[in-house]
Design a protein around this nucleic acid. Structure first.
Lengths: 230, 230
DNA sequence: TGTACATCAGTGAACGCGCGTTCACTGATGTAC
DNA sequence: TGTACATCAGTGAACGCGCGTTCACTGATGTAC
């Protein structure tokens, strides 16, 4: 972790020094570059080293193994996602859950391969770094705040958890499927992907009876606001 | 595709004949066994051949390459999923969309590795077999029927499509995330996974205005700007 | 019914590949004196 | 300020592995006569 580079060498940095300076950082960035360019299945340790311009053994001075590098990448992803959601939350005076959902999906769609790595890390939780868990919790907390603000009962712990989880699941589903080619016509019809995503998030109520109202589920009027929307 | 086996040989089948009888079938079943037992990343062509008790080259008499085998497996998965949804639909006198969602999630949760293969096939659609597309369409049609039955406007093509897609996305999200370890406490609190899934599907309305009822639930104001936004 | 033969579904050895990881090493850094 | 040296971050060659795929082959099947 020696901060070299500018401290000693006045050379124009063109000389590709033996020491990298901050290879840990460089490797994570290389990994993200590969994800963006070639997708998740191209993300091997060797490819990352190659991308960073370093020998295949070099990463082992910074990460125990491939998994640890993956975790670091996912970790950073969760931080970025959480940050994006926080910004959206603060930018919306009403602090609506929907804005959090949109921010979530937009992030995932802008970084699909990274998102997939994050998801894979989240799934087998034993390997999940605690930092990522914290970011996840922070994001979920925003959702909880939004729901309470919208009138959810803060004392109904289980109900509130269910609502947060449901929101998360829906956002995940939309994030993963929004890019499906077969949706292109609909996306075009509603005027672009963000409108599409907002439209989807706005109508997940199809499954639900109104919470706290056991009567009726997918009510007749459902389609009406939809039709009006476009 | 020669139907051998029982037609000629009265032997007790213990003798492991040179010809398999229906290796294509056997390979697909072997693949599903591997998926169930070892997960998706264990699914190599060689492993499938091994599982089927056959040399690594044998599958090439039945599938052009690994991808074609994968497609066949996904294809069968889509058929099974569609079938499960159809059954649930017919078993429910009210033909509710929620029952379709539950059936979807239960299938995916019961066959997580298979579901993942199916999803991967669905995502890069160019490799998607048309048979699978048909099954998908059939399943989506059930959802559409359920929504229309619940009062959706059959003439609002785009709105109906959006609703179906939203339902599908939500089911996908729930299916993929229901197994997350961090949800275990909530699952226990609501009395098991099916109750959990039903609870989630029942409250996806958090993103939405209440169908046909602008009051209540997820803040009235929230839905309005959303709907207006598109 | 019996035999010759084309067809087909298997075998098993081999190919080249990229992978994760280890190893002994070496070049650069920065600190103690 | 100058020098000796411990520390650390790199190298590059090598390991064993399992993979997808190809190849020349051979054993079994079923059909034509």
């Amino acid at each position: 972790m020696t901060k070299t580079g500018e401290s000693q060498s006045p050379s124009p940095a063109a000389a590709k020094p033996y020491h990298h300076g901050d290879l840990r950082r460089g490797l994570i960035e290389a990994a993200r570059a590969i994800l963006e360019r070639d997708g998740p299945q191209a993300l091997s340790l060797r490819a990352v080293a190659r991308e960073a311009g370093v020998s295949p053994a070099a990463p082992y001075h910074h990460f125990k193994d491939k998994n640890e590098l993956l975790n670091a990448v996912a970790d950073e992803g969760f931080r970025d996602l959480s940050e994006a959601m926080r910004k959206a939350f603060e930018a919306d005076p009403g602090h609506h859950a929907a804005e959090l959902g949109v921010a979530y999906v937009i992030f995932a769609r802008a970084n699909p391969a990274l998102y997939r790595v994050m998801y894979d890390c989240a799934r087998d939780e034993e390997s999940m770094p605690e930092k990522a868990h914290e970011e996840e919790d922070a994001a979920l907390n925003l959702v909880k705040q939004a729901l309470i603000r919208a009138g959810a009962d803060p004392n109904d712990i289980v109900g509130l958890s269910l609502s947060c989880i449901a929101a998360w699941c829906t956002a995940h589903g939309v994030a993963e499927m929004a890019g499906f080619a077969q949706f292109k016509p609909v996306i075009a019809a509603v005027g672009g992907e963000e409108a599409f995503v907002r439209g989807l998030l706005a109508r997940v109520s199809i499954f639900a009876s109104v919470p706290g109202r056991p009567d009726q589920a997918a009510a007749p009027a459902e389609a009406a606001p939809l039709a009006a929307a476009e």
